[in-house]
Design a protein around this nucleic acid. Structure first.
Lengths: 144, 144
DNA sequence: GCTTGACCCTGTAGTTGCTACAGGGTGCAT
DNA sequence: ATGCACCCTGTAGCAACTACAGGGTCAAGC
């Protein structure tokens, strides 16, 4: 099948498929006489694996490692477990951060009574860290 | 004060300060005879506002809007409230997504019994979407 | 055969928010 | 004078895509 078919079959943007090929996540497929990419079932299966892993928040490099393991069934499973477990810990950490952030934002917004920006509690709170209920940290520690 | 001092005073990378100036979040400061940037208290205050807002997960453009409101105290407060409320909704949505993801990852990992990759449940689950307990969606809907 | 529109190709640049140089200048203590 | 910390501008890179620009291919319809 051609790239458009693969795109629809896996819910992946055509340009993303070419990107994955460029960075080595997908092997270069055969080409037609007109230089169109021609994919088979193995490509569709591999791309589905990649998309699923990405949806679960694994980074490209983590996906690469997982694919490598899948390509070598004689390897130990512990590496996949380690990758997944570390990712789970990061997700849990991120949740904690977002919950703290949600609580802080709720407090800030809850005290907004409308009116002029001069009396705006949102603006005031952003300008004065000491008004925060609890110490919050930056929330940019992971991408998902 | 010079840029290094401002950096330490606000916990902001020197290069990030220059970046903020370049994108207009901070006004260009006065310069010394040797072309060094020279900042006053107003810059320190403004940068603290920016960092605080960023820590709370507001995008640069949202910060820009909030700064504009703070610069115009005669404006209505509702815009700041709208920005903050929308952000709060996004945070809540993100939390929901991450909780679903955490649960799914826990299920996948919990069934891992070690051994060879050939029998790896992590790898198997990534390759087969139907093994997921619930429908999960991609977790990349916001940056923080 | 010609036209048209969907699809395909490669190469390049852009998104967001920084971050890290390269190469050169300044200030101050030794 | 030297050395080191700091400063400057300009450019490129990071992650993971995404969006062109410019050109080629295919197939249906006329």
């Amino acid at each position: 099948m051609k790239i458009g078919e693969l795109s629809r079959a896996t819910g992946t943007n055509v340009e993303t498929i070419r990107y994955y090929e460029r960075i080595g996540l997908l092997p270069a497929p055969e080409r037609t006489a007109s230089n169109y990419r021609s994919y088979g079932e193995a490509h569709r299966t591999r791309l589905a694996f990649v998309r699923h892993s990405r949806e679960l928040g694994f980074t490209i490099e983590e996906v690469r490692s997982l694919l490598d393991l899948a390509d070598h069934p004689e390897r130990e499973c512990s590496e996949a477990d380690r990758i997944a477990t570390r990712h789970l810990a990061q997700v849990a950490e991120k949740i904690d951060q977002l919950v703290a952030l949600r609580d802080e934002l709720s407090r800030i917004i809850g005290r907004c009574r409308g009116g002029l920006a001069a009396d705006c509690h949102v603006i005031e709170a952003l300008g004065n860290h000491t008004l925060c209920g609890n110490e919050h940290k930056s929330v940019h520690s992971m991408s998902c």
